[in-house]
């Protein structure tokens, strides 16, 4: 039996739109909203549900005008409904490659291809992997990138969190409520996390901080995580933590692999673009977490989206 992998798109000539927005997080949804509202025919590509990281955030405490009673998911769904009301069409397919050298640009998914006069890259970022041997196979077997998703499976057990930023510390605080003991493994001797987290961390008596330590190996028993081997970077001493789970929170990695050298990226893979989202290619823009910038938040993502759509509309006007 062969399943339906060929949507309608394969059969027909690719349609051409004014604007293709890749990624339906806050940046992409806002870009699509502004694009459609200024009269551009707009396609919004999304590999999962619309919403991006914002939709996975339980409480959004710092989006102006919204109190903590609004979850990130609800806000994201409202953004999507609003964009749709202005005529944005969402295509639930992953963009796997783009050809920016042809006019109009060619956008390919596993199910078809599309052409667009302007493109906004708003693909955001996903949690970075640590790069440990067997990390991939052990996902779902004790390796996790989402403490709030998977913490409950390790209720009453000992677990480790790797990282030192806000996400790592928030994970530790969350896990300390449900697990017996939580180790925080950080490669430096102080945390990057925001000050308010430090105080909350200090109040927890079932947390042990492992400073100057890097995770080197996952200890595996019966196909599951049974521990993690650490090395102290200052003393070179080794230590094994007997833990049932390792939560990895070592930052984010931009989703730019599909661009395959078509756009200029910085050394971490973020798209180089100015505040209006302009890249070196006059009809291609970047918005949101995927762009080089200092502060990656919902509020800066939506601002980027509005800017990039405005720049795209300007480009199309100027070409007329």
């Amino acid at each position: 039996m062969d399943l339906n992998t060929s949507g309608d798109a394969l059969a027909r000539e690719p349609e051409t739109v004014d604007l293709a927005v890749i990624g339906a997080g806050p940046a992409g949804m806002t870009a699509a909203l502004y694009g459609a509202r200024s009269g551009l025919t707009t396609l919004l590509f999304e590999r999962l549900s619309p919403g991006g990281q914002c939709a996975t955030t339980e409480h959004l405490e710092n989006y102006p005008g919204y109190s903590d009673s609004t979850s990130g998911f609800d806000l994201a769904m409202k953004m999507h409904a609003q964009a749709s009301a202005f005529g944005v069409r969402t295509v639930t397919e992953e963009v796997t490659s783009v050809d920016l050298s042809v006019t109009p640009n060619l956008i390919a998914t596993p199910f078809g291809s599309y052409r667009a006069r302007t493109v906004i890259v708003a693909t955001g970022a996903t949690p970075a992997q640590l790069g440990l041997p067997h990390e991939d196979e052990l996902r779902g077997r004790g390796v996790s990138y989402c403490a709030t998703c998977d913490g409950n499976f390790f209720r009453g057990r000992d677990v480790a969190v790797i990282g030192g930023g806000d996400t790592a510390v928030a994970d530790v605080i969350y896990l300390a409520r449900i697990c017996r003991k939580v180790y925080l493994v950080h490669r430096r001797d102080k945390l990057r996390a925001t000050a308010i987290y430090h105080e909350r961390l200090r109040q927890l008596d079932n947390v042990e901080l492992c400073w100057d330590s890097v995770a080197e190996e996952l200890v595996v028993e019966d196909g599951r995580v049974a521990g993690v081997r650490l090395r102290n970077v200052k003393t070179d001493e080794g230590r094994v933590l007997d833990v049932a789970a390792v939560f990895i929170a070592v930052g984010m990695r931009p989703n730019t692999a599909f661009l395959a050298g078509d756009l200029e990226l910085d050394q971490s893979g973020y798209v180089i673009a100015d505040e209006m989202g302009r890249t070196a290619m006059p009809n291609v823009f970047a918005a949101g977490d995927v762009r080089v910038k200092e502060l990656r938040q919902v509020v800066t993502a939506v601002a980027d989206g509005a800017n990039a759509a405005t720049a795209a509309a300007d480009y199309l006007d100027w070409r007329k």
């Binding site: 999962l48 549900s49 919403g51 939709a55 996975t56 339980e58 990130g72 639930t92 709030t148 409950n152």
Partner: peptide
């Protein structure tokens, strides 16, 4: 899945399709 799991919500419409 779990009702409180963000990635589960992200996956839901894909499975429906």
């Amino acid at each position: 899945f779990a009702t409180w799991c963000g990635p589960c919500r992200m996956l839901a419409p894909v499975l429906d399709e």
